[in-house]
Design a binder for these strands. Structure first.
Lengths: 234, 234
DNA sequence: CACCAGATTAAACACTTGTTCAATCACCCG
DNA sequence: CGGGTGATTGAACAAGTGTTTAATCTGGTG
């Protein structure tokens, strides 16, 4: 196999070898984490370590190229499938495709490490969830919230974070071929409690919520909360 | 200050220097992650790198000692405060105490890396949540679930995972002194949507849940789900 | 005091890391 | 064919890693 036919081709101004290196790096970073050495990646791509820095400047440059590739891949795929508002479903679908699994795994690794890609991705997901939840509200299937932006962020963090933690603890590090089945297991384990919580809630009465609403002076709409730049300076 | 009076003293059979090294390691691991070098930790503790391996055998031995210390610290603290069933409140309280903040931060690092401590901790939290939710059900304030064990795991992963992700993305790495205020910000941002979701749910009608219950053949109780025996074995 | 065990150190070791450098190779243009 | 340009290599470098080893220091016991 000289080139992966499906997901990853050369970007403009990129030689075939460079993109091969980049793909090998994504796969290796996904498998071993970002502490993987340049020589290992070079061996995967059938080249030398020196050539990598010749093409990408440095290891950090290589990682930036990987980030960009994964992000653009996500952008492309997003239009081909409907999300459930949190991106979890989208990721689950992509992880089933053997070709795309490394990308998803790279993404998880990126979130473990907390890079810029992770932040961008989360913001994307929040944006999608915002649209999705708004549509749901308009259609009358989603309850309105007292603070829509806060709820959107909350749901996105919940969905993504729990998935991240689950994979971290269940050793998604190990064999990449286990990844798709792990993903399915996660979804199966999660579906019922999630649906229960979303349709029926957890608590029987409203006392805790009402107490909180009584206690907190801040009214529903806080425009500066959506930006999340700094917010509370005290 | 020769010894930290509050949280960390010598354990039995441990010299004062050893515990000083261990505490320095916890703080340094919390600050820089587990890739922190032995020489850095040694400098923090005012000793040499060789002495560390003399006392702990290896870097991994040192990390095991740190894990054990943090875990035992958590065990001790757990009895002094009521949890909200997920451990989040407990962590939030502890993070406010300047002395304990490194422990909490070490814990987050441990979950980022996915070690054994993280798995143990999550199991602890799930156990606590189990008891707490059961008590809530008995008291009539928590709705019963069709699969209590699955819901418990789900809630624990949600709470812990979203917190982990939030801190990873909001740069809890940087300044340790920012950690307590970051924690408070997280709780404030989270409280309203969480309470809303827990008391009112997200969806207006039950169609999605009913569809799922119709579609899935598996009845509520799956005994092998509660144990989750294999864990991180690979 | 002599002696020993443990704490502690400084230096070296073997290894990996990312990066640099000069040399070679391949190919395209004139 | 000549020449130049970028791809590519292998070796070297400097810095860092965890670990080992021999030596020194220290304190308690006979």
């Amino acid at each position: 196999m000289t080139s992966l036919g499906g997901g990853s081709g050369e970007r403009d101004g990129e030689t075939a070898t460079a993109s091969r290196i980049r793909d090998a790096a994504i796969a290796r970073f996904a498998r071993d984490g970002f502490r993987a050495g340049l020589r290992t990646i070079a061996a995967d791509a059938g080249v030398t370590a020196g050539l990598i820095v010749h093409h990408f400047g440095s290891k950090d440059g290589l990682r930036r190229a990987c980030d960009e590739q994964v992000l653009e891949f996500m952008r492309r795929e997003k239009e081909k499938a409907l999300t459930d508002g949190t991106g979890t479903m989208l990721l689950a679908q992509m992880a089933q495709v053997e070709q795309f699994a490394p990308m998803v795994q790279y993404l998880l690794r990126s979130m473990q490490a907390g890079g810029q890609l992770a932040a961008q991705l989360i913001e994307h997901m929040i944006g999608d969830a915002e649209a999705y939840l708004s549509a749901g509200e308009a259609a009358g299937v989603v309850r309105p919230s007292r603070d829509r932006a806060a709820r959107t962020r909350y749901l996105a963090y919940q969905a993504t974070g729990s998935m991240l933690l689950w994979f971290t603890l269940h050793g998604a590090d190990a064999e990449p071929e286990k990844f798709p089945v792990l993903f399915r297991r996660y979804m199966e384990e999660l579906a019922l409690p999630a649906l229960e919580l979303f349709t029926e809630g957890l608590l029987v009465d409203r006392s805790m919520l009402d107490e909180y609403l009584m206690y907190v002076p801040d009214p529903p709409s806080t425009p500066d909360n959506a930006a999340d730049s700094d917010g509370t300076a005290s």
